[in-house]
Amino acid sequence: MKYFIKKLITLIMTLFLVSVAAFLAFQIIPGDVVTSILGTEATPEREEQLREELGLNKPPVERYFNWVTDVLRGDLGESYRFSKSMNEMMPVAELIGDKLPVTLWLAAVSLVLIIVIAIPLGVLWARSSSHFLDAVLGVVTQVSMAVPSFFLGILVTYLFGILLKFFAPGSYVSYQEDFGGFLKYLLFPALSIAIPKIAMTARFLRNSMLTELQADYVRTAYSKGCTKRRVMYGHVLRNAMMPVVTFLGMIIAEIVAGSIVIEQVFGLPGIGRLLISSISTRDFPVVEILILYITFVVIFVYFLVDILYRVIDPRISEV
């Protein structure tokens, strides 16, 4: 329990520091929101008026505290750029709430693919005494890791979309309309994200298992009369998972923050694209909230990894 409280305090402090940093960053970087909204032709009066509307004329410290208290109350602010109707700006919450499920589902599907494929592949690789399989897997994973993700996205589109016609490129179905179709469409961008990660994870797991196989307890297991299969799955795998879990944590943190390139290639309205466009138009309320979101996700995922560590390895002190 004490452990959880400690973790929670760390989380809050980190979020606070990040929020200050995010806020400050936009005070420092050049570029004016007002200019980017109104264009360079606007009159000074109009600019002044907009500044007042947006609250930009107040001192930064006051603005920061207003923003934080609003966020804490659940009001994430309004976008500078997107309007809901003629005289109402789009609330950030709504804007992100719309796109977040796309990114999260994409991440989930990718993660499932990674785990389901990479772990058996890694074990198989470590077990194999065949030089041929070893060489083939070595080359395949090497190539998969080296190919840039946008190109992989294009390859997947071409192979599964155009040649095999498993899906129609560009025919994104919103999750509100047809959830099944949405997931089916997601499978392919998820695959594009997963392929390099699968290669890395499998490679990682294999190396970790090969190291573990040198350990004394493996010899003990053989001395009992265990088969190789039993030694692999019963003894080695769990011990070998430790570094892999850290690695998976890093991958999760990365894909949950939105895969900008893949979202772009497959035309997915996710967080990644929103982030890029918001930065370029200086839509600060959106960017700031996205930064906080990503920070939160990363810390939370590492927290989960930490818990998982304790589950896998009893030597790490109990929670």
Partner: peptide, 8 residues
């Protein structure tokens, strides 16, 4: 120490 599986 090392001859026993640390996670079992």
């Amino acid at each position: 120490m090392t001859s026993l599986n640390p996670t079992q």
